[in-house]
Design a protein around this nucleic acid. Structure first.
Length: 578
RNA sequence: GGACCUGUGGUGCAGCUCGGAGUGCACGCCGCCCUGUCAAGGCGGAGGUCGCGGGUUCAAAUCCCGUCAGGUCCGCCA
């Protein structure tokens, strides 16, 4: 029982009334969840508020219908022998001898608000204000609130100071596409909404706030996915006079506290592995440790192979337990998927008591056949999938197939946290041959790899690290560059001239000339964290008013045209729709 | 930008392969009956642009083309 039940209009929450209240006369408010009539002298009304349901016994003549808002004053009474409902927390009692006041009548809702059938998401989003009355959405959003509270408490306990940063920021054409806001007072110029408070928080470090945090909204105008909305919420933090290990400890404390608040259980461990290890064994930079099916290297076996399909620098394989049951069409689907992911093809081998069942089997040498047969301790009935390609490509394709095939539902399995460290500084070359930063250009290179900056930039590791939970990237962080000479070398390696750096990040470079402490930070997505805690595959389920995959809000109709007057004030011109 | 899946009374589905009257199921809604239900029950009733447009056909929810909306994914997300 909370202290927040009573108001001027009510005494208690519906779901909190128990047999210890029997005999008391009290008032509750709520929505009509269900009415069951038994003639003109008796009807049962299930009254629902955020806490649950209580049964109200009324005269059959009382005209209340689904989703009417009622204020009911009555006496808490033990239910008669044999009518106790043990499915309800309030199932031992009911409210009788009632005065019913209709606070608000209601039209029949467009869909039923119980959780018994799945409603099309389009309908749910159009009537989101009704959808969030449902128990599942109530629960999800309250888990989210608990997580936020736990995160704030953890950061405060660790001495962090909450600072708000601007929503209207300066364009920095780099990274994610920005949402643009035209300036009325400066016609022709624009603000952007922050894709993250990255630069602001580094300026806070220069400003002496040695431990900053914020529950920050971030906006990115990129295509949406199950785990990506235009706007999302991060726990953003940054600290001075720290190493990567300090940051990882701060974040671990916050996440573990949040987990405990949301699930009631505090995870005991967070694993750590390097990026190279994650790629090699799991084929991704966000490994899901809930299941095996790790990648096994067969490159040596096939180094001088006659099999043309395996003539590649790297040959890797995974074992699919009991996968030999897969139909030919399923195997064709997997092959298609592998090609979508950029592979040249996918080889499959059913493991049988007799040997291997595969179109490629007759091309294999005995040594090769034995190697495939024994991948990951394969048993009869398993399936071996093999991809041959450049190293990174082979790993990534097989890693994606591993997730497609083996990944349990979000709601299943343990919560396996893992830090992925030593990300590469660069993730490839752009069209002009310049390396592309894997994180952002303020990321500190690994101290041991500074010498490689000029000779072999793609081999340079960075002091960047991700936190991963069950195959979802929760967030990432890095040690930042605070020395002008190193920053200049990184910009040079990226092909960014001094002038360009000055015009893009001048205020940050300027700030760093006035005494920048060594600092590092992190940010992780609260939407994703809560979705996993809530057992939801999609972050829309933990967001009150989300957008569709095409970026529409089906409830408000956004995005919408603005008025001629607004356009004129902003001094912008809108091209006609094509 | 691309691939795939979905769209049928208010809601959830079946019908589509193999064209033949808007056919069916469950929930909801409206009316009547019912004093112990809680997925209440009984009787009766209303409710449809089969997403939209075009084509094929004697005939289209069903086949073909296009389009819109929603979803999953690839690209994209420093």
């Amino acid at each position: 029982m909370t202290n927040y039940e009573a108001t001027s209009l009510r005494d208690r929450l519906c779901g909190s009334i128990t047999s210890s209240d029997i005999g008391n006369r009290l008032t509750v408010c709520g929505w009509v969840a269900k009415r069951r009539e038994h003639g003109e002298h008796l009807a049962f009304v299930d009254l629902r508020d955020r806490s649950g349901i209580v049964q109200v016994v009324v005269d059959g003549g009382v005209d209340v219908r689904s989703e009417y808002v009622l204020r009911v004053t009555g006496t808490v009474t033990a239910r008669p022998e044999g009518t106790v409902n043990d499915k309800l927390s309030t199932g031992e009692i009911e409210i009788t001898d009632c005065v019913v006041e209709v606070l608000s009548a209601a039209e029949p809702p467009p869909f039923q608000l119980n959780d018994r059938v799945d409603i099309d998401e389009q309908i749910r989003l159009r009537y989101r204000y009704l959808d969030i009355r449902r128990e599942q959405m109530q629960r999800n959003l309250r888990v989210r609130a608990k997580v936020n509270t736990a995160l704030r408490a953890a950061m405060e306990r660790q001495g962090f100071c909450e600072v708000e940063t601007p929503m209207l920021w300066a364009p920095t054409p780099e990274g994610a596409r920005e949402f643009v806001v035209p300036s009325r007072l400066h016609p022709g110029d624009f603000y952007v909404l922050p894709q993250s408070p990255q630069i602001a928080k580094q300026l806070l470090m220069v400003g002496g706030f040695d431990r900053y945090y914020q529950i920050a909204r971030c906006m990115r105008d990129e295509d949406l996915r199950a785990d990506r909305q235009f706007e999302f919420t991060q726990l953003d933090l940054e600290a001075s006079f720290v190493t990567q290990l300090d940051i990882m400890e701060f974040v671990s404390q916050a996440v573990l506290d949040a987990a405990e608040a949301a699930t009631g259980e505090r995870p005991t461990t967070i694993d750590t592995m390097t990026w190279a290890e994650a790629l090699d064994r799991y084929g991704v930079d966000k490994p899901d440790l809930r299941f095996g099916m790790t990648l096994h290297d067969l490159s040596d076996v096939f180094e001088a192979s006659e099999v043309k399909a395996f003539a590649a620098p790297t040959v890797k394989a995974i074992r699919v337990p009991n996968g030999s049951e897969y139909s030919r069409s399923r195997l064709d689907q997997l092959t298609e998927r592998a090609k979508d992911l950029g592979a040249k093809g996918l080889a499959w081998f059913r493991v049988t008591d007799e040997g291997l069942d595969s179109p490629l089997d007759r091309f294999l040498s005995d040594v090769e056949r034995a190697a495939v047969r024994s991948v990951d301790g394969a048993q009869s009935g398993d399936l071996i999938l093999v991809v041959a390609d450049e190293y990174v490509q082979a790993c990534k394709v097989l890693g994606a197939l591993r997730v497609d095939i083996g990944s349990p539902p979000v709601s299943q399995g343990p919560h396996r946290y893992v830090w992925v460290t030593e990300f590469p500084m660069y993730e490839g070359l752009d069209d002009e041959g310049n390396p592309v930063p894997a994180h952002h250009p303020f990321t500190m290179p690994h101290a041991d790899d500074l010498e490689l900056m000029d000779t072999d930039p793609l081999a340079v590791r960075s002091q960047a690290y991700d936190l991963v939970l069950n195959g979802w990237e929760l967030g990432s962080g890095s040690v930042r560059i605070h020395r002008a000479d190193i920053q200049a070398r990184v910009f040079a390696s990226l092909g960014i001239s001094d002038e360009e750096a000055e015009s893009r990040f001048g205020f940050l470079m300027g700030a760093f000339r006035y005494g920048a402490p060594p600092h590092a930070g992190f940010a992780f997505g609260i939407d994703r964290l809560v979705a996993i805690f809530a057992g939801e595959e999609n972050i829309r389920e933990v967001i009150a008013f989300p957008k569709t995959q095409s970026g529409s809000d089906l409830m408000t109709g956004a995005p919408k045209a603005i008025t001629e007057r607004q356009i004129r004030d902003l001094r912008i011109r809108v091209s006609p729709k094509v």
